[in-house]
Design a protein around this nucleic acid. Structure first.
Lengths: 210, 210
DNA sequence: TATATCAATTGACATGAGTCAAAGCGCTTT
DNA sequence: AAAGCGCTTTGACTCATGTCAATTGATATA
């Protein structure tokens, strides 16, 4: 464990700075200390889809080290100034050999991610854009406060929820017009949390309005 | 290892018979010996999306046993008469404690699945229906033979590729009209593998025809 | 041979979300 | 304060896919 710590490196990235690209060889994984990382896939036509937004305190790319010839299936860039700790996969794998408990913990973590991805697929194929956006905002909202900040640019949220920025804007407008929430700049205020929750899972069927 | 084998159970399912439902408690996992299993998510409106088709020789649901309170995130029914081996998660977990190698193997397996799911999300959000269908057929085609059978009903393939049966039918029709493939009943013949591969990744942009 | 059943196909039509293009707004820079 | 530059919003229009409904086909049951 000390070996890992000793050989771990700190990395600082400025806003928008890339850490690695889709297809690069993966020999290290990362822990976000401060800021956010954006993990995304690129389509041949240049379109991009944000797969995950990793906040401080979370790791990413550690699942790759068990593959034959590990390559990043996504690209990664910093959102805002970001600090990371980078760990060598080989060092870490050596530790895993000595600790079944750590293995199990990792297994648990990966199970969790697997389930999240299944939910995402469910969302994409079974739910409307409005629904996904509503669910995303809800997931970002603090438990017991209706005012909070979206510390992430809207076009990134749009990509994360798989809608175009224009569509995202229209969905927000529609939620506003139903007095479900308010958004000014990056400040969000939930006016009717319940209605938002309904929109998030009833979904398809647009809520009756006016 | 013998303990697991001794306590494993054989299960036989008739075509269409369910093994478990989405939300059921997960205490066992499964290996398909013969036939196929369909894993799917249900939307509140009754719509279903096939998440995975598990063929003989593969396991499923083993990733769940590492979660706190494991519940199946999908439902499972047999496609065609199917035989399974059912293993108790607790028994298996006990073995894992004794074998780091087995842990690592599982980790590898889960990494692989994680990557597949990311590909799926990529497909859903960045590629057209035609593209997904083309890719699916290609993935099912044997390496060096252009004639083969789809041993799975078309509406299931449709759901797997996230299109409606009607749309699936139209996509096939269009591929036929371009002399890329032929489908009669469950028999497929690839006429132009290259063109199909192109359709699978160029994707969005429909191939110029006649 | 009829008949019920379920899957697959086809046509006509509806619609959610994307595209394109033009403002508008909020920054920082000069 | 003016100018410049991204991001966001708006409007008008298009298009891929879904929906609904009817028909055909294929297989099993009587």
């Amino acid at each position: 464990m000390e070996r890992v710590a000793r050989r771990a490196k700190a990395v600082s990235l400025a806003d928008g700075e890339p850490l690695f690209q889709q297809g690069d060889k993966a020999t290290r994984f990362y822990l976000v200390v401060k800021g956010h990382m954006k993990l995304f896939r690129l389509a041949p036509d240049g379109n991009e889809k944000v797969i995950e937004l990793v906040d401080a305190g979370h790791t990413f790319a550690e699942a790759l080290m068990f593959l034959e010839q590990p390559r990043f299936p996504v690209g990664a860039v910093a959102l805002g100034d970001t600090e990371l700790i980078s760990v060598d996969a080989g060092d870490f794998a050596a530790i895993l050999r000595d600790s079944v408990d750590l293995c199990l913990a990792l297994l648990g973590d990966m199970s969790f991610r697997l389930r999240s991805l299944i939910r995402e697929i469910d969302d994409l194929s079974l739910h409307s854009a409005t629904c996904r956006v509503a669910a995303f905002i809800l997931a970002r909202a603090p438990e017991h406060r209706d005012d909070f900040e979206l510390d992430i640019p809207k076009h990134v949220i749009a990509s994360r929820t798989s809608v175009k920025p224009e569509t995202f804007s229209r969905i927000i407008k529609s939620l506003k017009s139903k007095n479900i929430l308010e958004i000014r700049g990056s400040k969000v205020r939930l006016l009717d949390r319940q209605a938002l929750e309904d929109a998030a899972d009833v979904c398809g069927l647009p809520v009756e309005a006016t």
